[in-house]
Design a protein around this nucleic acid. Structure first.
Lengths: 230, 230
DNA sequence: CGGTATCCCCCGCGATACTG
DNA sequence: CAGTATCGCGGGGGATACCG
């Protein structure tokens, strides 16, 4: 028997693993489950995955009917999970909970990624909790690579934009911290208040916005499973 | 950056996938979760996995403290899940449930494997439900490869033995069927009674044993999630 | 923007044999 | 029984460029 990608077992775990446990696939599914639909949107959440490989994986997922591909009205294509694909949510969820609980990441240099952090964070803004007007938050990471130190998050009632370039907005709120601190807060390993107390994170702006900040900035969906303290 | 096995992401899903979503690893974990501890016991549940690769995977799992390795009193070594390893049970469970629900296997030739079927089945005998004496069941699969048509399952109060050779036991019970039917029953895709009605499966022996059979032979842990009807 | 095409390396892993 | 050793190949996938 030549090399095959199958395991030759009837066991449902084996059959599921043939699809699911392939390199990058769980992360592609994570992105889709988080709501990304466009190719380049997916790429942004998977910066180290080559486009050709992403393309290959998307085709495989289509072939097995876990996703569909539609030409979008606005041009380009959209990938959406089918019912079968969406049913993988509990698998991803359990995997993430396990990772959060049992994998003590040291969060070193090569795992920290401001771009990814801000991209994830953008998806978890609770627009309901925001004041009923546009709010612009500026994030400054003095320790990030030069081109990535300064971010704008522009939120209005139904939409969040993330910008790296200065679009000339005045900010309502200024957050200054380092990548590792913000990542730890995001992952639930450090509370906002502890980070503030240690002066590892600073929030500046009108008091009601500063007070509201930890409320409308929801943390990672896995933050609950965190073991705090690093 | 050269090829690495990591994804370079802080996301818990990514970190967990680095470990979990490697070829064969989910199946090794499945075997360990089902109670196998010895190298050759694991091999038996993973007949197509080469011993060297199994050895490699076991080392990786040790390195990440998902399993421990003890020299056993009876000679040889035993692999046991640590707390962290055992905590992967929900992941495997969800994966299996998903596979069972959404992957319509046609159960063709290359997935059917009597040896594997009998090996799995052996693990799911409800000894409590058996009469309080030794029971020997004979299984005959006329369609299986010549050396694999005839099986003995020897059950006493605390122990189940599976034999391919005739050890000269008289059997209390005789089951005759084909591999595909028994596999479908095992997976919950076909009920015992339906199989009997179609004469795809025959049980012979004293009436109380025949009646008890579907009760003490528990099905796959994923049978509940099955979509019956094939 | 939304992908393909191509190239090539490298190593995962399958096969087999062998050892304490 | 419980693994190790060795070898060789094939193709996965990284890098990059390019196209519609």
């Amino acid at each position: 028997m030549p090399r095959t990608k199958t395991y030759g077992q009837f066991c449902p775990v084996a059959r599921a693993a043939e699809l699911f446990a392939e390199r990058w696939t769980p992360l592609v599914l994570r992105e889709l489950l988080c709501g990304s639909t466009r190719f380049n949107e997916l790429r942004r959440g998977l910066p180290l995955m080559s486009p050709s490989l992403l393309s290959t994986r998307l085709k495989t997922l289509q072939r097995h009917e876990l996703i569909t591909r539609h030409e979008s009205d606005s041009g380009g294509a959209e990938y959406r999970l089918t019912e079968a694909g969406a049913a993988l949510r509990p698998v991803i969820a359990q995997l993430g909970i396990w990772g959060q609980r049992w994998l003590r990441s040291r969060l070193d240099e090569d795992e920290l990624d401001v771009g990814l952090l801000m991209w994830d964070l953008r998806r978890r803004i609770d627009l309901e909790a925001l004041p009923d007007r546009q709010v612009v938050a500026g994030f400054t990471y003095p320790d990030a690579p030069r081109a990535m130190t300064r971010w704008w998050v522009v939120m209005d009632h139904d939409h969040v934009d993330l910008c790296l370039k200065d679009y000339g907005f005045d900010t309502d709120l200024e957050v200054t911290t380092d990548v590792r601190t913000m990542t730890r807060v995001w992952l639930g390993r450090l509370t906002f208040s502890e980070a503030l107390r240690r002066r590892a994170l600073r929030i500046e702006g009108p008091q009601e916005l500063c007070r509201g900040f930890p409320g409308w900035l929801q943390l990672s969906t896995f933050a609950d499973a965190a073991v705090s303290g690093d």
